[in-house]
Design a protein around this nucleic acid. Structure first.
Length: 473
DNA sequence: TGAAATGTTGGGGCG
DNA sequence: ACGCCCCAACATTTC
């Protein structure tokens, strides 16, 4: 009986899983395996919120496998040692996995592939995570793209969707000694700070499909108009499911295409196109991380190496992290992040602009905090998002585009519902003062809400001066 | 996927 | 009736 190992990593689904399908096509039995090896991803091992997600996603995958007569075998790293041990136990002839694109993980995978092949074991990797491989699209000159619009134009013309394969009905697996229990991986927080996460999310492939259907039915049509308003259910909220690979971009794009076709209206097509474009940003982020692997730590634009950041200020950073800056829309976003492991994208841009421009703290501090607190923390997306906001990245917002949080809040949270939801101490503040409560010091005292950590006008001017200094040197 | 400063226009009040 | 001023509304430029 020919056996193969399917090495699950961040492709925690059974449908549209090319590694699983290839293994099943070529072997009679497959062993689904997860290896916990955070050290191999250093310095970007999953943060606390993402580990919580991973725990529940692994549990869901295990349950899905058990319904099909199999189970997820869990082991501790190093990955190669775990694979070797199971190859010895099962007589597996090959290992199948789906590719990842973080620099440390790619290096690890290359080493594993070389070592397996040197031992005569098959090693096969597939693309499950992206519409296009990061090396597949290049400019006319053969360079990687640095600007989103031409990248997406090329991608869009090449995009051909086919119905994604369903999950296999039954999975035959070899008998094995007992797996490490999931709890032994130590992914759950010791202190119970995860109640808010559990209330907000259902990790796992089934939860991902439910979320996709909910989005397609209730929000997709209004997506272009509603997606910027953080108090509304106007976005897909699929990002953590995508990061864990519980759903693929191909599955999403195909399903939304079906829904748009069923609707037949031009508006439905435009809404789908608008959402596809956001998937395009995800593709672009992976393209950039692949071609510029140093960007999680270093500016993509070397000119920004001379940018005069303010001195690291632990107290100011802590106030930003914990939603005590005195700027309501910023604090609301940071508290949404802390409680739910997620923040609306419009608000991510606002808090990132505030940290990197008004507070002039290095974007790496923001990226690291997001890394630890986001359930969707993804090295490609997080890196490109922060560099875009800071102005140091590819196709970035010009540095002088400094958000005024009060204006952004009035525009995108006009009724104040988002701010009142996350800042209960300001719930009773009148509409006229809610987004700039510092205009009434008595109100601040009454609500126990802090005065702004920095003056918006003064800090804006200081940021522009710092930018001028960078350009002059 | 900005905001602020500056420029332009046109209606209305007024002498 | 006319010119002048004010200023809101909108457009353009600048950072």
């Amino acid at each position: 009986m020919s056996v193969a190992i399917v090495w699950f990593r961040r492709d925690l689904r059974l449908a549209d899983n090319p590694a699983l399908a290839a293994a099943q096509a070529a072997h009679e039995r497959v062993l689904p395996l997860y290896v916990h090896a955070p050290g191999e991803e250093a310095p970007w091992a999953a943060g606390g919120a993402a580990r919580w997600w991973l725990h529940h996603s692994l549990a869901a995958l295990d349950a899905d496998l058990r319904r099909r007569g199999s189970a997820l075998h869990m082991a501790r790293g190093p990955s190669l040692r775990a694979l070797d041990g199971l190859i010895a136990q099962t007589g597996a002839e090959a290992v199948y996995w789906n590719r990842l694109y973080e620099p440390a993980v790619m290096a690890r995978d290359r080493a594993v592939k070389d070592a397996l092949r040197a031992r005569g074991i098959g090693a096969h990797s597939s693309n499950a995570a992206l519409l296009f491989e990061p090396w597949q699209l290049q400019s006319g000159q053969g360079d990687p793209y640095r600007v989103f619009t031409p990248f997406w134009r090329k991608a869009r013309t090449r995009l051909q969707l086919q119905p994604p394969p369903a999950a296999p009905g039954r999975i035959a697996s070899p008998a094995l000694s007992a797996s490490l229990p999931l709890a032994a991986l130590g992914l759950l927080p010791r202190m119970g700070w995860d109640a808010g996460l559990a209330a907000a999310w259902t990790p796992g492939a089934a939860g991902a499909q439910d979320q996709l259907e909910l989005f397609g039915e209730s929000a997709l049509g209004g997506y272009p108009a509603q997606r910027d308003f953080p108090d509304r259910a106007g976005t897909s909220r699929l990002s953590p499911h995508l990061h864990a690979g519980e759903i693929s971009p191909r599955q999403i794009a195909w399903r939304l295409g079906e829904l748009a076709q069923g609707d037949c209206g031009a508006a439905a097509g435009a809404a789908t196109e608008s959402y596809l474009r956001e998937l395009g940003w995800r593709e672009f982020a992976h393209h950039l991380l692949y071609h510029f692997p140093q960007t999680p730590m270093a500016n993509l634009h070397a000119g920004f190496d001379r940018f005069p950041w303010a001195a690291d200020d632990a107290e100011v950073l802590a106030r930003w992290q914990h939603g005590r800056t005195g700027i309501p829309i910023v604090d609301a976003g940071m508290r949404e992040l802390w409680h739910t492991g997620w923040m609306h994208n419009r608000v991510r841009m606002i808090v990132a602009s505030f940290l990197t421009k008004n507070l002039r703290q290095h974007w790496r501090h923001g990226a690291r905090w997001f890394w630890d607190t986001l359930v969707d923390a993804d090295l490609a997306n997080n890196t490109q998002g922060w560099q875009w906001s800071a102005g140091s990245g590819a196709d970035a917002a010009p540095y002088f585009r400094i958000f005024n949080p009060a204006i952004q809040a009035r525009r995108f949270d006009p009724a104040g519902r988002y701010v009142r939801r996350w800042l209960p101490e300001l719930a009773a503040a009148p509409d006229a003062l809610l987004q700039q409560p510092w205009q009434d010091p008595a109100l601040l005292r009454r609500c126990g809400y802090p005065a702004p950590v920095v003056d918006l006008q003064v800090s804006r001017r200081a940021a522009l001066e710092a930018y001028q200094r960078m350009r002059a040197t």
